[in-house]
Design a protein around this nucleic acid. Structure first.
Lengths: 204, 204
DNA sequence: CGTAAAATCCCCAATTATAGGGATTGTTTA
DNA sequence: TAAACAATCCCTATAATTGGGGATTTTACG
């Protein structure tokens, strides 16, 4: 069974919330954005009725001089991870209270990765299984290096160019590509390009 | 017939672009977001090939101390309206150069209204021509055979397979591919795949 | 009718990619 | 600590593509 992350978003920008929803849903079926609030007060009135795994919230909504911690304001359980969604400058004191920070300038893939990593620290026994073999591999099976190589391939680089970009030998690039093909099951450059596009790794 | 606004977006945040696209398309069928760029330089490399009615651009991308006007940088025709998409503070000098300003905190409905009003001031005769034969925006320079070959390439076929599919020799396939590359200027398989996707020749 | 483009085919040489087979050095983790 | 994985590198050989140069026949259009 696929574990899905139940996510709540709190951000004053409706546009941004829409963008996050669209992007995450396109990237993977693992994300369910179930609740969307424009303000903290709007969220508070529903806080008792919802139970998200992850809250993505704009840190600018919190009073920088406030004594209360973020967690207490959101009155969440220990199991809920809180991620800051930042697009303006926010004080370090605030930021340090979050389990992770995503930026408006992150790519959808980067955001997805951060969410997964943050959620990965959730309760210990129930969350390991969803990698396994599952059928179709998604981007999380690919290592960082493999993702980088995949992106370059999808951008049309030759192995030699990729080697130059990342300062590794062509042999290494080929090795990574072999692993990418093995993991994804996709052999052709065009297929990998579509894969990269669908997973938000590249833009047109 | 409904007039559709052909829109280009230039903003570093992929999330935000996704949000704008989603929101506008949900609000009305009048908006066609046809081009999406993460930076001015990215836009510039396509500026000659596209013809938007409206450019929505993040004003923060422009050098506040620059002497050039926004319009000259975007080198657009008089017919194109330029709208600022702001979510950080931007100098008034810059902002005054735009035909309109939308904010990240505007609702989709507000944004739609602003775009319509701005576009309403467009000159009346210029907007009839761009449909031509509709269908595929840029594919018209490719012959039928070339399109077929392109589709097969984008699907991941080798030249040998393509030859088999269309009952022609590998030499012919190569010739067609040479012509495709010459006409489109796209050399890589991944680039051609994206091209095919954008032109609706293949689906993921 | 002539011309241009499309569609087909061929050759050669060089470059790239794929498919096997390895190896080593780390790090993480059960 | 052993096992698994990531990341790096190497070899051989074959397959595929690219880039340059042709050619012929058919079709479309003014």
């Amino acid at each position: 069974m696929a574990v899905k992350f139940r996510i709540a978003i709190i951000d004053p920008s409706q546009i941004l919330r829409a963008g996050l929803e669209t992007s995450l849903s396109q990237i993977s079926g693992k994300f369910q954005i179930l609740w969307s609030f424009s303000s903290l007060s709007h969220y508070s009135s529903f806080a008792d009725e919802i139970d998200p795994d992850i809250i993505i919230v704009n840190p600018a909504l919190f009073d920088p001089s406030g004594a209360e911690t973020i967690k207490s304001i959101l009155s969440n359980t220990e199991d809920t991870r809180i991620i800051a969604f930042s697009y303006t400058h926010t004080s370090d004191i605030l930021i340090r209270q979050f389990d992770s920070v995503i930026s408006i300038y992150d790519t959808p893939a980067e955001i997805a990765l951060k969410i997964e990593k943050t959620a990965g620290s959730l309760s210990s026994d129930s969350d390991k299984k969803y990698q396994k073999q599952s059928g179709h591999p998604e981007s999380y099976d690919l290592s960082d290096r493999e993702l980088e190589v995949l992106v370059s391939v999808a951008k049309g680089c030759t192995n030699k160019e990729i080697a130059g970009i990342h300062n590794i030998s062509v042999h290494t690039v080929i090795s990574h590509r072999k692993n990418i093909v093995r993991k994804t099951g996709i052999k052709s450059v065009s297929g990998l390009t579509v894969y990269a596009l669908l997973n938000g790794l590249i833009e047109q």
